[in-house]
C-alpha cells in the first residue's frame, strides 16, 4: 500500500521506498530542498522538520515512521504564526553566515516558541543545542529568537 504523508497541510502520495529517510523523500521526490542534509546521523540539525509541532531530524528516520503525523518543513513554516515571526527576525538580525544551518534553525526556533513563547536565554541555548552552526552565527540566531519571542 502506498505511503501517504501530510506535508505542510497537504496529503502527499509517496512513491519512494517507505524505508527511505524522510529528508530524501522531501528533497528528491517532492522537490522540497529547503530541508538540508548535513550528516545523515541525526547529529547536526540541518534537516530539522516539525512532526506534530515537535522538532525532529529527518535525515535518518524512514519516511514511513512519519505516517499519520502532520509534517511541517521550512517551506511551510511561514503558515505558522511563530514561524513567520522567526523568519522575519532572522532577516532583521542577519542571523546567518553561510546559511546552511539556517533552515534547520528556523524550524527549531519555531518549535521552541510554540512550546515556550518567552524562553530564557538558557532555555533557548539548550533547545538549540541539537543544531550545529560552524560559522559562529549563534549570537545572531539567539538575538533573532529573542526578537521573535513574545
Amino acid at each position: 500500500m502506498a505511503l501517504t504523508l501530510s506535508i505542510n497541510g497537504e496529503p502527499r502520495e509517496i512513491e519512494a521506498d517507505p524505508e527511505t529517510p524522510l529528508a530524501y523523500v522531501l528533497r528528491n521526490e517532492l522537490g522540497l530542498k529547503g530541508t538540508k542534509i548535513g550528516c545523515g546521523l541525526e547529529q547536526c540539525g540541518a534537516c530539522m522538520i516539525l512532526a506534530d509541532g515537535a522538532p525532529f531530524p529527518s535525515c535518518a528516520a524512514p519516511a514511513a515512521s512519519f505516517a499519520g503525523k502532520e509534517i511541517t518543513t521550512i517551506e511551510g513554516i511561514a503558515s505558522r504564526p511563530a514561524g513567520a515571526r522567526v523568519q522575519a527576525a532572522f532577516i532583521a538580525e542577519t542571523a546567518a553566515q553561510c546559511g546552511y544551518c539556517t533552515a534547520g534553525l528556523v524550524v527549531a526556533c519555531t518549535a521552541l516558541l510554540e512550546a515556550n513563547p518567552s524562553p530564557t536565554e538558557d532555555e533557548a541555548k539548550s533547545a538549540l543545542a541539537p543544531n550545529l552552526c560552524r560559522c559562529g552565527a549563534h549570537p545572531r540566531v539567539l538575538r533573532a529568537l529573542a526578537r521573535a519571542a513574545t
Binding site: 530542498k33 521550512i74 532572522f90 532577516i91 546567518a96 546559511g99 546552511y100 539556517t102 533552515a103
Partner: peptide, 15 residues
C-alpha cells in the same frame, strides 16, 4: 540571499 535562506529557497550546491 538572507530571505531565500530563511524560507529554504536558497540553492546550495547539493541542492
Amino acid at each position: 540571499g538572507i530571505s531565500d535562506l530563511v524560507t529554504g529557497r536558497y540553492t546550495f550546491l547539493p541542492d
